[in-house]
Design a protein around this nucleic acid. Structure first.
Length: 917
RNA sequence: GGGCGGUUAGCUCAGCGGGAGAGCAUCGGCCUUACAAGCCGGGGGUCACAGGUUCAAAUCCUGUACCGCCCACCA
């Protein structure tokens, strides 16, 4: 098949993806051998492909395709995460649009609705990933809530329970009043916000004329105050500690206590203590055994029952009953003001915690929850990183990892939602009757003292009383609990499967730093706990993709660039190449669209290089006319030896770059070689050999071109899978997919030091001549005469390359002189020590040439001055490395020589001009 | 309050101890039979600022400014 004039990515991409899929090429090769495995960071089922996914999966695919070609058995496990809260929110919003709700449906029907939604819309992102070209093994696709993974979750839960690493306790937790569930600490985003600091008078119980002033940002929580605290050494409150306070509004009598936690500098130095709604206060409450009043219900509205149950009374209870916390705040401030308790209000910036799923302000809330005793898991998880059993790349992130792990708090894993893994714990209806509370939604809630029966499956009967009425814990597990098992649950755990044996530990985890704690840390802890081994060897942490201004892309900001749009406009290969080229370590990616357009041109360049090769093969391909030609290294000409040598270096650099996750270096090395060495120079030079009268020379050139192109395609395939496969197939008949070809290996014999030195010299000469021609406006097609003066060896070399001088610089006739006078009416350039003169006769404008030469002399003089200054420095000569000094000396003589030559030409011009006048 | 990263050509970014680079944009010349999505050539930067280490600093150290992240219980 003939290559078309320009590359069009449309159609080609999906064609090859289906082909690969149908050929089973994404599945790991059978048999033994080195393996390489990756588990995909499972995108949320609710997700659609964004730039972060695109980058993440492109990098993984580059690794997988490279390793696969390089002879590894590669398994890349794809799948999705059920994303408990996020998904539940999505489906709830849809229900709301239909005028119904989760509670109206009830738990069972709601869950069925979510499943249905998942089946219909949930795999969107996987289809989008396919468009990106990812070589995942889809026969291994998993979902965190499929049967196998659910079993793994129950197994893990039971094991943790048996090992006493799980417990249920009534604690202050982060509560989202909108999602109506507990959240783990890291699921709370702290954000600075403008607020007020209200100074409130708290009168002494035995002397209402005297009062302490407390400062608070949350006056509404005073309904739950059970103490006031000052610093023990605070002179201002000396003698008052131990006295009682009568709280405004509620009239509750609370003690004044002394605790060193209190900061004397802040506010008034007197701190109201609300153990039911503030984490610090909770701690102090524990120390002083204070009452913890939960003043809000699950919606964060004032819960009148909390007061009535304590035997409190008063009109205030009714006044605030069921008021939202922010409404209550306004009312309370108003009441305090009216009654003269409000001393002052000042503006104050504070950090408010928000739900990471819905941005609602978090309420510290006292409820019974399940926790993982995390310290025993965290210790070994730190050791494996410290000991290098897991490498975090770039290494800088390990600091964050350690910092977080060292200060880790017990992990709250229960969520009061419906979509997720329901906790495998049951309660006996009769034994736990006093602890069973039926909520407004009809669901049972378990009191803090309820005794769970933890089991893999629902027990038949209560082991204590034999009762058969068992109620499963209504809570589900944190989504990240199941994701934490992902590297082994996807491979079949808890069964001892072949996959586990073959592919665990996985090789590399590729992920963004935003889920380092959420996910990576948890996988390490869980992997060590349940598999007794690390879940992966390398963690490569890549950048975040931002917009051109460096802003995080988000729908609300409207600055989102949709990867699918980009792919359809510029082609997936160009897009992938861009991502790779920009994926420098430790830096965010600010994605500029014109950059992608630039790489689209590169794809096209490659395409046209292939066209050139194909045209010259004259329809012949790898199985064709030249197939019997064997390349003998000794036959290769100058250009051929040079390009092969460059290829060897490029292969080495490409491999080294991928091996160390320097994706940008990988992309750039290929770009540089393909465009600026292969296309710009070698292809142009090859045209001579291809047109050679010597059939053997032409055949050899065709053969080499073809080999070089193949090597380039192979090198490029991991990053640009589609266009490389298309060309690969167009250039050969019945070729096996490029996916399964061996990745290039640099041959030591290809490296050619001589041409590596000579070629830059030749390039310099050709560029100098082109430059001179442009300077004097010599028409591009016109051949010129050139006179070269320089060292004998250089002259001999240039003499040997005369044909290239003609084809690439349009030198019609060349003269080679050991030394000589600058010819009249010539323009001058110097390359190294080689003087180049182009006699231009009348074409030359003497004034312009004189100006040009003066400028050039000035430039070189500046450079010479800098070098001479260095060489005049005794310290430099004494302390710098010999080779550096030597280099500087060479430079100096070269510059001097150059100046001499240029001055000579300058004088010549002046002579001519003088002669004319 | 701690910690991390950034500041290099008009824009987006590499480089991270020895002569300032790429892509895009820009200017000039070319439809040279692979490619005008191209070819050839050019212009453009006291590498944020101030100190220091070094024979030598964009590159290492310290500090400052401005951006951006992460962590944190100062009400």
């Amino acid at each position: 098949m003939q290559l078309t004039k320009a590359y069009s990515h449309k159609d080609i991409e999906s064609k090859w993806y289906s082909h690969w899929l149908q050929s089973g090429l994404f599945e790991p090769a059978k048999g033994a051998g080195r393996y390489f495995s990756i588990v995909i960071p499972p995108p949320n089922v609710t997700g659609s492909l964004h730039m972060g996914h695109a980058l993440n999966n492109t990098l993984q695919d580059i690794l997988c395709r490279y390793k696969r070609m390089d002879g590894f058995r590669v398994l890349w496990v794809p799948g999705t995460d059920h994303a408990g809260i996020a998904t539940q929110n999505v489906v709830e919003r849809q229900l709301a649009q239909k005028g119904t709700s989760r509670t109206e449906l009830g738990r069972e029907r709601f869950i069925e609705t979510v499943w249905q939604w998942k089946r219909e819309a949930g795999d969107l992102i996987l289809h989008q990933l396919k468009a990106l070209g990812v070589s995942c093994d889809w026969s291994h696709e998993r979902f965190t809530m499929d049967e196998g993974l659910s079993r793994a979750v129950r197994e893990a839960f039971v094991k943790l329970w048996q090992d006493k690493l799980l417990y249920r306790a009534q604690r202050l937790i982060n509560w989202c009043p909108r999602c109506k569930t507990a959240l783990a600490d890291i699921e709370v985003i702290h954000e600075e916000a403008d607020g007020n600091l209200w100074h409130i008078r708290y009168p002494l119980a035995d002397d209402p004329s005297r009062a302490l002033v407390v400062a608070t940002t949350r006056p509404e929580t005073m309904l739950g105050d059970t103490a006031v605290a000052v610093h023990p050494d605070d002179q201002r409150y000396k003698g008052l500690v131990g006295k009682n306070i009568r709280l405004p509004i509620t009239g509750r009598i609370v003690p004044l206590i002394a605790d060193p936690f209190v900061d004397r500098e802040f506010g008034t130095g007197a701190l109201k203590i609300t153990p039911g709604h503030d984490f610090n206060d909770f701690e102090i409450g524990e120390r002083f055994d204070l009452d913890k009043i939960s003043i809000f219900d699950a919606d964060a509205r004032i819960d009148a029952a909390a007061f009535l149950d304590r035997g409190e009374s008063g009109v205030w209870i009714e006044r605030y009953r069921s008021k939202d916390r922010f409404e209550a705040r306004k009312l309370i401030v108003a009441e305090l003001k009216e009654k003269g308790f409000l001393q002052k209000t000042e503006a104050h910036k504070l950090a408010v915690g928000r739900c990471y799923r819905c941005q609602t302000v978090i309420e510290p809330y006292l409820t019974p929850q399940w926790f993982v005793d995390i310290k025993p898991l965290a210790e070994p998880a730190m050791s494996v990183v410290r000991e290098g059993k897991i490498r975090i790349i770039p290494e800088g992130w390990s600091n964050s990892y350690f910092a977080w792990m060292e200060n880790i708090k017990d992990w709250c894993i229960s969520r009061q939602i419906w979509w997720g893994h329901q906790i495998p714990a049951w309660y006996c209806a009769s034994c736990e009757a006093p602890n069973l509370i039926q909520g407004a939604d009809g669901e049972y809630r378990l009191g803090k003292d309820a005794k769970p029966i933890v089991a893999r499956q629902a027990p038949e009967k209560c082991p204590t009383c034999g009762g058969k009425d068992l109620i499963q814990d209504p809570d589900v597990l944190d989504t990240w609990f199941s994701s934490g098992l992902w590297p082994f649950s996807t491979l079949g755990w808890p069964d001892q499967t072949e996959d586990l044996k073959d592919f665990y530990p996985t090789s590399t985890l590729v992920t963004g730093f935003d889920i380092l704690f959420f996910w990576v840390a948890r996988m390490i802890m869980m992997g060590l706990k349940f598999m007794g081994d690390v879940p992966f060897r390398d963690v490569y942490i890549h950048a975040l993709v931002r917009d051109e201004q460096g802003q995080k892309m988000s729908k609300s900001k409207g600055n989102v660039i949709d990867p699918l749009d980009v792919m359809s406009e510029y082609g997936t290969d160009a897009f992938r190449f861009t991502l790779a080229a920009m994926a420098a370590m430790g830096r965010d990616i600010k994605l500029a669209e014109d950059r992608i357009a630039g790489y689209q041109n590169f794809v096209n360049k490659l395409w046209n290089a292939a066209r050139f090769v194909q045209m010259n093969l004259g329809g012949a391909n790898s199985a064709g006319a030249d197939s019997n030609t064997v390349l003998d290294d000794r036959d290769l000409d100058f250009a051929e030896r040079w390009i092969r040598s460059r290829l060897a270096f490029t292969i080495a650099e490409a491999r080294a770059a991928i091996d160390t996750y320097r994706f940008n270096d990988y992309a750039n090395a290929l770009y540089q070689f393909t465009w600026h060495e292969f296309c710009d120079w070698y292809i142009e030079m090859s045209k001579l050999a291809l047109n050679s009268a010597d059939a053997k020379v032409a055949a050899r050139s065709r053969k080499l071109l073809q080999e070089l192109l193949d090597q380039i395609l192979l090198l490029m395939h991991p990053v640009m899978p589609f266009v490389t496969e298309e060309i690969w197939q167009l250039l050969g008949d019945n070729r096996k997919s490029i996916m399964v070809q061996p990745y290039p290996v640099a041959q030591a014999g290809w490296i050619d030091d001589e041409t590596e030195k000579q070629m830059p010299f030749l390039m310099g000469v050709i560029r100098a001549i082109r430059n001179l021609r442009t300077e004097v406006n010599c028409p591009p097609g016109k051949e010129v005469r050139a006179i070269f003066c320089g060292a004998a060896a250089d002259l001999a070399f240039l003499h040997g390359q005369e044909s290239y001088l003609r084809s690439l610089a349009r030198v019609g006739a060349a003269e080679f002189r050991q030394a000589g006078e600058p010819p009249k009416g010539a323009v001058t350039a110097v390359v190294g020590t080689m003087e180049i003169y182009l006699p231009m006769e009348d074409l030359i404008n003497l004034d312009e040439e004189r100006a040009r030469l003066r400028k050039e002399v000035g430039k070189v003089e500046d450079e010479l001055a800098r070098v001479q200054k260095k060489l005049a420095n005794a310290d430099f000569l004494a302390k710098a490395k010999n080779e550096v000094v030597h280099k500087e000396r060479e430079k100096a003589t070269q510059f001097e020589e150059k100046i001499r030559t240029l001055r000579g030409s300058l004088e010549k011009i002046q002579e001519i001009q003088a002669g004319r006048n």
